[in-house]
């Protein structure tokens, strides 16, 4: 239900906006081009989603690997350092990470992708460590008693028990990514932020509204879908 309503809104917007030129003409009579046509809204949505999904997938892989490493006996001593990185990293605003990536990688999708990955790792990493740390010792002893190896214990016992917090981390990471990818259009990435930024620069409020409506619906859809997935995992 939580995903259905925003998803339906998103689809309606994608189908309806290209035909809504008369409405925007009526709303902003002074604008000669009240409908964003440089790139189709569907193409913008797809490229926005691709950026978010690929970055979140990579961030999840890195965060999970680091989180698992830091909770194994061999990597335990890394835990305080990992925590410190996560705490310091959270104070770095997404805009700052984006801005730092530009001089290193130039304009376009590349700096946005790197910023999304760097920033997306932190919530997954933090929640993986928290989730694995909260696995009851009794469950671990039981697994050891049943003769489980280290890998089997991790995959069959620890990860399923920590799945709730880990999914919460992935969800947070994805939501932040949707927002940061929107700002990424200011450094040349093609996303749903492009109509917003172009509208702000060119004083075209109609573009701004179109981009903002779509990106809002997209964010709520992604959030709803991941909330549903989290509930499925928690069961």
């Amino acid at each position: 239900m939580r995903a259905l309503l925003p998803a339906a809104t998103l689809v309606l917007l994608l189908l309806g906006l290209p035909h809504a030129a008369p409405w925007f003409h009526a709303g902003w009579p002074s604008l000669s081009h009240p409908l964003y046509v440089r790139t189709s809204f569907v193409a913008l949505t797809v490229s926005h989603l691709l950026l978010v999904v690929s970055a979140t997938a990579l961030a999840t892989a890195i965060g999970l690997a680091l989180g698992i490493l830091a909770t194994r006996p061999a990597g335990r001593s890394l835990l305080p350092t990992v925590r410190a990185v996560a705490v310091v990293g959270q104070t770095f605003p997404p805009v700052a990470v984006l801005a730092i990536a530009v001089p290193l990688l130039g304009f376009g999708a590349a700096p946005t992708f790197v910023a999304l990955v760097l920033y997306g790792v932190l919530p997954v990493l933090g929640q993986t460590v928290a989730g694995l740390d909260a696995v009851p010792a009794a469950a671990l002893h039981a697994a050891d008693g049943m003769g489980y190896g280290r890998w089997r214990r991790l995959i069959d016992v620890e990860l399923p028990l920590a799945a709730g917090p880990i999914m919460a981390g992935i969800r947070l990471s994805a939501i932040v990514s949707v927002g940061t990818a929107t700002i990424g259009s200011a450094v040349g990435a093609t996303t749903l932020g492009s109509p917003i930024v172009e509208g702000l620069v060119g004083n075209n409020t109609a573009y701004v509204v179109q981009g903002a409506l779509l990106v809002g619906a997209l964010a709520l859809t992604v959030d709803g879908l991941l909330a549903m997935a989290a509930r499925g995992v928690g069961r």
Partner: peptide, 20 residues
């Protein structure tokens, strides 16, 4: 929480109309 999910740039942008 619903409000927090909306990307910042979108929320800033959507407020331009009503505030104007």
């Amino acid at each position: 929480a619903f409000l927090q999910t909306v990307p910042s740039l979108a929320l800033f942008a959507l407020l331009i109309g009503p505030f104007a």
